Simulated scan of single mutants.
Amino acid sequence: MKGLKKQRRIQIVALAAVALIGATGLVGYAMQDGINFFRSPTQVMEEPPREGETFRIGGLVEEGSLKRGEGTEVAFAVTDTNATVPVRYTGILPDLFAEGQGVVALGKMEGETFVATEVLAKHDETYMPKEVVDALKEQGVYVDPAEQPES
């Protein structure tokens, strides 16, 4: 009788472990398409993404690069002052989108151009997305507005 209880307990624990491993695998598989990694323009140029990979690119909108096309088509370039990636977007840009300001775009590379499906801009005169700040700090070009001397 004791041996049967022990065997049943081992079977239940083994079944629970298999179910947990299966559930973890399914969650990981389901989240695979929902994870969008952030890359700076330098990272995109140094290590091009896989074909069809969706990711976020961020940096500053390069001065003089904003070109409006037919309807809601817009082309601009994102830079981290070390590398520049051309971006194409069809849609309405956020009100605070401007040249020289921080931007994060979601999309895919098509050849040498990043085709964005979503563009996010800063929300006030001092805000910049954390990923963009980190990438600019790595390049050594970010100056914290709080540390700038007042004019």
Rank of each mutant, 00 (worst) to 15 (best):
T42R: 13
T72W: 02
F114A: 03
L26R: 02
L96Y: 08
G3P: 00
N82T: 13
G3D: 04
E47T: 15
K67N: 07
V133M: 10
Y127F: 11
L120N: 12
Y142C: 00
L66M: 08
P41L: 04
D144K: 05
V115K: 11
G71A: 09
G102C: 15
Q32M: 08
G28A: 05
I35L: 09
G64M: 09
V143H: 09
V132C: 13
G64W: 00
T79K: 09
G34Y: 15
F76K: 05
P149I: 02
I10P: 00
V132G: 13
F97P: 02
Y29A: 15
E110H: 12
H123E: 05
P48V: 06
Q43A: 15
V61W: 07
R88M: 10
I92Q: 14
Y127L: 09
K67I: 07
V133E: 03
R39L: 03
I57K: 04
E53R: 02
V143R: 14
G64P: 10
K67Q: 12
E138V: 15
D124K: 01
K5N: 04
E125Q: 14
L26I: 12
V13H: 04
M1R: 07
L93N: 03
G100C: 08
K5R: 05
K2W: 00
L60G: 04
Q101P: 02
L106N: 12
R88H: 11
T72N: 14
D33S: 15
E138C: 08
